[in-house]
């Protein structure tokens, strides 16, 4: 190994990290957020053909005429198709799709503004509002829910939601436990079995109970802190809120595969951080990559399932 190699590696590392932050800083906020939002709409769209086709057509138009991404009509097409889909399926539309709908309308208003500074203000105001709204509304719903406060929700999910089986294994809950619980619960659902008094003992474990209580405390405290700190609008509290939001995005969307939600929260965090905290903005960029990587079939690897 030559003497030059380590310093070259350091140079390369510095080049990668610093150039990322530098190139982010050089790009205009509205342009960057527009690109990230278009990517979100195409990669994590509403699950309806109207929106999927609209998003793909918009992507195609952008690739051919890049300037179109600055036109309000471009964003209005996406926002209108999202509105139609949400109205058609309002009761089955996930909360984070509502957030995408709101954000697409924010993009319309942003690009409809004439003054560049006003465009930025539209984005920054709405990013802060929606971050506070999402986290504080979630906290209010959680605090008003007895099944959340008692920890039974996360415990039940560790047993019954297959998305949590791999995560459960990583924290010491054997996959045979949720399997056994689900087999028992099937007795309720089958018309060919009649459960006496409609009561069943679940073959759960103490570990699942402890993990559920930790998850409940972690989730509630983190979300309430993020919501409250962004509400205060001080440099220090913003900085702490960004760190917590990044921690939330990096840790939540690994076990919970709601990638579009993670992506839109990261866009909002990035919008607030871009000009004030360049390094934090860089970290949001890394979180975009992380969310994409979280789609690796790691659950199958953990559970040893071969496709």
């Amino acid at each position: 190994m030559s003497v030059a190699e380590p310093s070259q590696r350091n140079l390369a590392r510095r080049f990668t990290l610093e150039s990322l932050i530098e190139s982010i800083q050089q790009m205009e906020l509205v342009q960057l957020v527009s690109l990230l939002t278009l990517f979100l709409a195409v990669i994590f769209p509403f699950d309806h053909w109207i929106f999927i086709i609209t998003a793909r057509v918009c992507l195609f138009l952008f690739l051919v005429f890049p300037i179109i991404i600055r036109k309000p009509a471009f964003w209005a097409a996406l926002a209108l198709s999202a509105t139609v889909v949400t109205i058609l399926e309002w009761a089955t539309t996930d909360n984070h799709k509502y957030l995408l709908l709101y954000w697409l309308w924010v993009m319309v208003f942003c690009h409809a503004a004439i003054d560049p500074d006003q465009k930025r203000r539209v984005l920054i105001f709405n990013a802060r509002f929606f971050l506070c709204f999402v986290f504080l509304a979630a906290v209010a719903q959680k605090l008003s829910s007895p099944s959340y406060r008692s920890g039974e929700m996360f415990e039940f999910f560790l047993y019954c939601d297959p998305r949590f089986t791999a995560f459960g294994k990583l924290v010491g809950i054997d996959p045979t436990v949720p399997d056994a619980v689900q087999k028992v619960l099937d007795f309720f659902k089958s018309p060919f079995s009649q459960v006496i008094n409609n009561d069943l003992l679940l073959p759960g474990t103490d570990r699942a109970r402890i993990v559920a209580l930790v998850l409940t405390f972690w989730d509630l405290s983190l979300q309430s802190l993020i919501g409250v700190l962004f509400l205060l609008r001080r440099t220090l509290t913003d900085k702490i809120a960004h760190f917590l939001l990044l921690f939330f995005v990096f840790t939540t969307y690994l076990p919970a595969p709601v990638f579009g939600f993670g992506w839109i929260l990261a866009i909002m965090g990035f919008t607030l951080a871009k000009d004030k905290f360049p390094r934090i903005a860089g970290a949001y960029f890394v979180s975009f990559f992380a969310i994409l990587l979280y789609q690796l079939p790691w659950r199958e690897w953990v559970l040893g399932i071969k496709n």
């Binding site: 309002w90 539309t93 909360n95 979630a138 719903q141 099944s147 959340y148 039940f156 709601v258």
Partner: peptide
Amino acid sequence: WKGGGMGMFASM
């Protein structure tokens, strides 16, 4: 979980 109230993972 649905309907825009932001109550994901808020109730069993």
